[in-house]
Simulated assay, not measured.
Amino acid sequence: MAAHSKKDEAGQVERVRRKKPSNIRAAPQAVGKGQGVEQPLVPPSLTSEDPLNRPEEALGQALCLLQDEEWERKTEGLRLVRALAEHHAEVLLPELHYVTTAVIAEVKNLRSIVSRDAITTMAHLFTHLQREMDSEVEGAARTLLHKAGETSLFIRQGVELALGTLVHHCSPGRVLQGLLAGGLRHRNPVCRAATSQSLLMLLQVVGVSHVLTGKKTFASEIIPAVSTLAFDAAQEVRTHARAALRYLGSHKKAESAVEKFVHLKDQSARSSQTQSCSQWWRTGTTSEEVDEAAAPPSSCKRLFLRVLVSEVTQFLGVLWGGGVSARWETHRPCGIGTSQSTSWECPAPKQALQSL
């Protein structure tokens, strides 16, 4: 019996070890103190291409194939570009701008196979040429972030791979400029989420101490951008941005940097945002009061609606012309001047139709 009980206990211990996760995420309180943080990011891995026998001829052939209308020939040209970037960089560098422009054009291709192949080719260029691609970062980042808004998971996974290689292998300053220009004010929330995730990855690659104690231009651009995305309407965007703020909070100069670089018109909004950042750093949660402070006042909403109604009514009055008048009463919202009524002349429907 004793032997059986020992075997059962050993089996239970083994099962517990199996169930134990390999990557334990730290609690937000531990993240704020710099404890239990995940290991540094590892650059994405790519499939390898075979070397080419005649790389000089392959370069011209690749450019010709990329201009062809057949998608099979386009994919063959992209394969040649990947092989040149991996094994024959000295041949590709003199024509790098023309090659990159051709590949970016294929990223916008409507055929998903060609577009995904071009996105993978951009990842190879970033990985193997690294800072030689700095001059092409802004255009590539803008195109990739726009492509991240597509519904196809096949394309979005490729974009995530390409943005990861971009962040890891190119100059941080150029990467930051490209991300801010291409996705910070994008209308699609999915594109803004990709931007927020890339900014978080950039902070992890560069390091908090380098951001806050290095060049002021980098900190003065990335901290306001992350603070803006932290109040975005989309939850996925806010999640990555607030994770970036918690990551910044592991440094003692983080709060003073936010007060220095985040310029707000309203001093109360500045203080509420700073307090909310400190709350994220300590607990990883936000209060409902912070979200309400970030929302626009109700008086601004009423003023906006009043202006909108005024513009629409005036447009209808110009379109229909004279006719039977209908009085439309509007009042100023509370706290914005005194109450004042205004009327517009609107024709009757029958007369309006007859006049057209």
Score class of each variant (00 low, 15 high):
236 E>I: 00
236 E>G: 04
236 E>D: 00
237 V>M: 01
237 V>W: 01
237 V>G: 01
238 R>H: 01
238 R>E: 00
238 R>K: 08
239 T>H: 06
239 T>R: 13
239 T>I: 05
239 T>N: 05
240 H>D: 02
240 H>S: 12
240 H>W: 08
240 H>Y: 08
241 A>D: 01
241 A>Q: 05
241 A>M: 08
242 R>N: 07
242 R>H: 04
242 R>Q: 11
242 R>T: 06
243 A>L: 13
243 A>I: 09
244 A>T: 08
244 A>G: 12
244 A>V: 09
245 L>E: 04
245 L>T: 05
246 R>N: 12
246 R>Q: 14
246 R>F: 06
247 Y>L: 15
247 Y>V: 15
247 Y>A: 15
247 Y>C: 15
247 Y>N: 15
247 Y>S: 15
247 Y>I: 15
248 L>G: 09
248 L>M: 14
248 L>D: 03
248 L>N: 09
249 G>E: 03
249 G>Y: 04
249 G>D: 04
250 S>T: 14
252 K>R: 15
252 K>P: 08
252 K>C: 11
252 K>L: 13
252 K>D: 03
252 K>N: 08
253 K>R: 12
254 A>F: 07
254 A>W: 01
255 E>N: 10
255 E>H: 12
255 E>F: 09
255 E>C: 13
255 E>W: 03
256 S>A: 14
256 S>P: 08
256 S>F: 04
256 S>N: 10
256 S>D: 06
257 A>P: 06
257 A>E: 00
257 A>I: 04
258 V>Y: 03
258 V>T: 02
258 V>Q: 01
258 V>G: 01
258 V>N: 03
259 E>A: 15
259 E>V: 11
259 E>D: 02
259 E>K: 15
260 K>C: 09
260 K>A: 11
260 K>F: 03
260 K>T: 08
260 K>W: 01
260 K>Q: 06
261 F>N: 11
261 F>M: 11
261 F>V: 10
261 F>R: 11
262 V>M: 05
262 V>C: 10
262 V>W: 00
262 V>K: 08
263 H>C: 14
263 H>W: 03
263 H>E: 05
263 H>P: 06
263 H>G: 09
264 L>T: 07
264 L>A: 06
265 K>F: 02
265 K>Q: 10
265 K>D: 03
266 D>V: 12
266 D>R: 15
